[in-house]
């Protein structure tokens, strides 16, 4: 399977060429266009219960679409909001994705939903997260650009900017500074991540956009 990410970083989309017999799994509604030779099969995302849980808590849809072709063809996948898309190759390891970030994966990848815990809720990252594991490539999207960082000791990320992280990453929610600067610096709470491992961050946050839009409404 050949896959390229085009129009980065603002309006990124994934152009996939499927050889006969290959298939790709994509989030419902991710398909923007495809060859007529490609067949689409819709199925519950990880089973009935898992699908409903993902819809309710994971910010993903209940269904995933499985695209395959007997004769070869192209397909373009995209996400709903402007921003970059990142490809990641799993080699038996696990990755956690923020709700709504998942776009597509190869068929060897397992999708699951995991409880992220109260601390991630406080960090405005959602109570649940998507757990991807297995072997194969996955594509996930973010709002704004995506940048990654290998963490070995400790690093600080503002809440709402974390998109994906490895399970080896420790995460603590903390105040940005002292009591005063936490409240008046506009930073409020931050997440302190500790390594070893890799994190992916988005250069914009939805909360930031919502707050900015709100301030211009009236």
């Amino acid at each position: 399977m050949q896959a390229e990410i085009h129009d980065r970083p603002s309006f990124a989309n994934i152009r996939v060429h499927l050889e006969p017999g290959e298939e790709i799994v994509a989030e419902a509604d991710a398909m923007a266009s495809m060859s007529s030779s490609i067949e689409m099969k819709t199925q519950w995302s990880g089973g009935f219960v898992n699908g409903i849980l993902k819809r309710l808590f994971g910010g993903e849809s209940m269904f995933v679409n499985r695209f395959s072709t007997p004769s070869g063809g192209d397909i373009v996948l995209t996400q709903a909001f402007p921003g970059d898309i990142q490809c990641l190759e799993l080699n038996g390891n696990t990755m956690f994705l923020q709700p709504g970030a998942f776009i597509a994966c190869e068929s060897g990848v397992k999708l699951g939903l995991g409880w992220a815990g109260l601390r991630m809720f406080i960090a405005r990252e959602g109570l649940f997260r998507l757990k991807v594991s297995g072997k194969g490539r996955i594509w996930f999207g973010a709002y704004g650009g995506i940048f990654q960082r290998e963490i070995d000791s400790e690093y600080i990320v503002d809440t709402g900017h974390l998109v994906a992280y490895e399970p080896t990453i420790g995460i603590r929610v903390a105040m940005a500074g002292g009591l005063f600067s936490s409240f008046f610096s506009g930073e409020g709470l931050v997440t302190r991540v500790s390594g070893p491992g890799r994190i992916y961050m988005q250069s914009r946050s939805f909360d930031g956009l919502a707050a900015w839009t709100n301030s211009h409404l009236y």
Binding site: N93, T94, G197
Partner: peptide, 15 residues
């Protein structure tokens, strides 16, 4: 579990 090593393709793998 998993492993981090510079000799691996992406520096990491499960196992």
């Amino acid at each position: 579990g998993g492993v981090f090593s510079d000799t691996l393709a992406d520096g990491r793998a499960g196992g």
